[in-house]
Amino acid sequence: MRLLRCGQDSLLVELDSLEQVGALHTALVAARLPDLVELVPAARTVLVSARPGSTGLAAARAVIESADLSRPPDRSPRTIRLPIRYDGPDLDLVAETAGLTVDEVVELHSGAEYTVAFCGFAPGFGYLTGLPEPLRQPRLARPRERVPAGSVGVAGEFTGAYPRASPGGWRLIGRTTAILFDPRRTEPALLAPGDLVHFEVAR
């Protein structure tokens, strides 16, 4: 674990794995420190931002230094089910790369349990871990200029769904009808870090 300074009011904690990120993020959320403005988990880091002029960073530091990163976080996560149709434009490419049939890809992707490791890229875009090994594949060599909202893709160790139309380089395998982000809802983002996610084939 490395602590990196990030301006006057923030600290970037660098960790060795996504599991450690999850453990530290959970510990910091559980500590309910009053002066923290943002807690942003990412692939290998947790960004901690405190209210300017407060003692929030010092309090966070105490939690960070005493957190047990080897233990999976003790929590009872929400489970979110995302209906999906596996008809993405890169489904054949993903199957070919994995050396599987399309049906086997569908079975693998829909059979796994995923965890929202972190969000980013766009509001409501969750990076989901738990992707079966054969589906861990590189991004497209040429990103698409427009990926339709709801598209479900894979890239590296992650799978995820695009909350709205945007450019994107993930290999697209399907599409969900779930509304991943709506700023008018009480809870605008459907997915938050720590949530469990299942893809369910829509009939």
């Binding site: 403005v37 942003v40 960004l47 931002s49 969000c119 890229f121 875009f125 982000f181 983002a189």
Partner: peptide, 9 residues
Amino acid sequence: RPGHAHLGV
């Protein structure tokens, strides 16, 4: 709207 970065906002 600070405080929502963990949701991508």
